[in-house]
């Protein structure tokens, strides 16, 4: 009868799968993106080079190609122990980290140079300067683009479904393969994505308002 009610467990598993995969990839992308942004503004040329290479590589490669690499190249090089979920996490996390890095870097460039010079003059190391002085002041300009980046990540996680990771988009394939009418399935899947992306933009709007109040 109703595709949603009859297949609630499938939808639920798919929904949870997407939320978890998105959250984990977002976390990985955040950490990697911050590190790479640190590399890109560091005074050490090899680190700067590595950061730039990282961004160039992952920002300019189609995500589907990264998935293919994770599925067929990574096992050949590092062995076959990795679960599909982990491989999807790596592809999504690495890809998104390039965008996070650039958002952070452009935020960093809005902080006056004198702030970092004052910090270094006090004897702070490069990383202390970044962590204690520059990044906190960059936050306000970094947060809005991050919202779009994580919404894009949510939708990009659908590619994992095509690689047999349990997530929302895969539910659609599962059910339509069983012969259910495709339109209502799509509708429910789309709604579920909306729930996630609306939550993300809501959370970020809250965060932005917080940052505005906190001068």
């Amino acid at each position: 009868m109703n595709v949603l009610l009859d297949h609630l467990p499938e939808f639920r598993d798919g929904f949870i799968g997407t939320v978890l995969l998105t959250a984990a990839s977002a976390l990985l992308a955040m950490v990697l993106g911050l590190v790479m942004a640190g590399f890109r503004v560091s005074p050490v040329p090899p680190l700067r080079f590595f950061g730039t290479a990282w961004v160039t590589l992952f920002r300019n490669t189609p995500l589907t190609l990264l998935f293919l690499v994770a599925w067929f190249v990574v096992p050949a090089v590092f062995g076959t122990g990795m679960s599909p979920w982990t491989k999807a996490l790596l592809a999504l996390g690495f890809y998104t980290s390039a965008f996070v890095c650039e958002a952070v870097r452009s935020g960093v460039s809005t902080v006056p140079l004198g702030q970092a010079e004052a910090a270094r003059s006090l004897g702070m190391t490069f990383f202390q300067t970044l962590r204690l002085i520059v990044l906190p002041q960059a936050t306000r300009t970094v947060v809005p683009p991050l919202s779009s980046i994580f919404i894009a990540l949510t939708k990009n996680s659908a590619i994992a479904g095509a690689f047999s990771v349990t997530e929302l988009f895969g539910v659609q394939k599962l059910l339509s393969d069983k012969g259910f009418a495709i339109a209502p399935i799509f509708l429910w899947v789309a709604l579920a994505y909306l729930v996630i992306t609306f939550t993300i933009s809501g959370l970020f709007r809250l965060l932005e308002r917080r940052l505005e109040v906190a001068r």
């Binding site: 702030q115 010079e117 004897g123």
Partner: peptide, 25 residues
């Protein structure tokens, strides 16, 4: 050279800038 040791040395040299450069946050 740039690094931990330089940071330590900079701590011994106080600097006051024309534009103050107090930490705004």
């Amino acid at each position: 050279q740039e690094g931990k040791e330089l940071a330590r040395l900079r701590a011994d040299v106080g600097m006051v800038f024309q534009s103050f450069n107090l930490f705004a946050h």
